[in-house]
Design a protein around this nucleic acid. Structure first.
Length: 208
DNA sequence: TGAAGGATTTGT
DNA sequence: CAAATCCTTCAC
């Protein structure tokens, strides 16, 4: 049943690689959210950051805690945390079981404005391509919160990933789309590591 | 048990 | 550039 509905769903095995490898590979892939009421929201990933063991910026750098425990487990699970008391950030756990690492999904290009959001946004200021441009904003747009952390990314869980569309891959192969690799944003430690990737041509990236 | 601070966002 | 706002972590 799940495979018939989601033929392009990404498997844990594909994510069981170093976060610095998975992060650029996730660009162009689709984050899909199914709300409790059945409504489905989709967005193309256009910006990611990698966090690895031995990385002072990684939440699992010091030791295993209740919050970061999921990062120590197998790939393909969601790691969601609350930042500054008001925004959530969504990560995909990567690498082998026992290797604490993850990819922060920082921005999505939404296919359509979430209907539930539509009524409360100012159409002049909240343009579609900016609604999920930023890790906190994308979680707000897809209604991702702490209830989703430590859950496997799968259709049955209401949150999952799908592979790049043939169109995206073609544009990438032809050079119509290009990736930029640069340093990560907002860090006080490990800010020098060039582990942020984004789609240069996208207007949904959080910052240039 | 408490205090400090954060992988953000927004408005001044 | 500072505020909003609360969970997590670490120190006492």
């Amino acid at each position: 049943m799940p495979s018939a509905l989601t033929p392009d769903a990404i498997t844990p095995n594909w994510l069981s690689r170093c976060a610095t490898e998975v992060a650029p590979d996730l660009l162009g892939c689709v984050l899909v959210r199914q709300l409790p009421d059945g409504q489905i929201l989709r967005g193309v990933i256009v910006e990611t950051e990698a966090y690895t063991p031995g990385d002072p910026a990684c939440h699992a750098y010091r030791r295993r805690t209740a919050r970061n425990a999921v990062m120590f487990g197998p790939a393909g699970w969601a790691y969601v945390y609350l930042i500054y008391g008001m925004y959530h950030c969504f990560n995909v756990v990567t690498d082998l079981d026992g290797v604490p690492s993850a990819v922060l999904v920082r921005a999505l290009e939404l296919e359509a404005l979430p209907p539930w959001l539509d009524s409360r946004l100012d159409p002049k200021r909240d343009k579609l391509h900016r609604v999920a441009a930023g890790p906190g904003k994308l979680c707000r747009a897809l209604q991702i919160d702490l209830s989703l952390t430590m859950t496997p990314l799968a259709p049955g869980q209401g949150l999952w990933l799908e592979r790049r569309s043939p169109k995206f891959q073609t544009q990438l192969d032809s050079g119509a789309l290009t990736f930029v690799q640069t340093t990560r944003i907002g860090l006080t430690q490990g800010a020098d590591r060039p582990w942020r990737w984004y789609v240069a041509e996208s207007n949904s990236v959080s910052k240039r």
